[in-house]
Amino acid sequence: MRDTVFAIARNTFKETIRDRILYSLLAFAVLAIAGSWLAGSVSLGQETRVIQNFGLTAMLVFLLVITIFIGTQLVYREVERKTIYMVLTKPVSRDAFYLGKFLGLALTLTVVTAVMGAAFLGLVALKTNTVSAIQVVAIGLMLFEAWLLTAVGMLFSSFTAPLSSAIYTFCLALIGHASTVLLAISEKSAPIVGSIIQFVYYVFPNLEKFNLRNEVVFGAPVDWVFVGWGAAYAVVYTGALLLFGIAIIRRHEF
């Protein structure tokens, strides 16, 4: 099964990396990162700060867009084009198909992140002559977030249309980042509201576990315990989502 998974992953990687939309998005992302230099130049002496914040946020936005729009179409497109029948008639299990699709896109996202990260770090190095560990780790954690959201997008796309999947994934990304703030607010709210928010906080993916971007501008040392737990959380949560997706696709009638 491992070989089958890798074969599908390789194919998915080739398919997504050749996507012209991906190239245009990547070009815009690099342009946006470079544009942060312009924003920095009108920031009253806060160039380094603005370049880092704008650059990292541009990376996040484009990574989210790519994750949502490609992740939610992967499985659906195979079903719509009926190519899934050709694959599943061969000795390929549905589990291997689903996992291969995920790994292929995860690899594409890794390449995309590497390209954007190189552009960002290059720009920062050009400005400050240094690259710090926290900048690299923050980018790495962003990739964990993208992988997790890919699993979310694929899960939704296994039972609903791409547009709905994209909307649900986007909402989940928003909730995932806002739940920490909501939890802090809930301390002052009614017990029932507090309980609901606590439910949201613990059940929905907490994407703030992958957020070191706000520490980058202060050049803080890397909190490896935070990073380690974040990575563990990403592995466990992504694993759970993939298992759910596999459970759904096993029952799916094509």
């Binding site: 009253l44 806060q46 700060r49 990292l56 957020n211």
Partner: peptide
């Protein structure tokens, strides 16, 4: 609070955004 809730965790970026707006 609203700014933080809708920032996708990029609160430092939002701060910079409004900093440029102040300028």
């Amino acid at each position: 609070t609203n700014a933080r809730l809708t920032s996708f965790g990029a609160t430092e970026f939002m701060a910079d955004w409004y900093w440029l707006k102040i300028i």
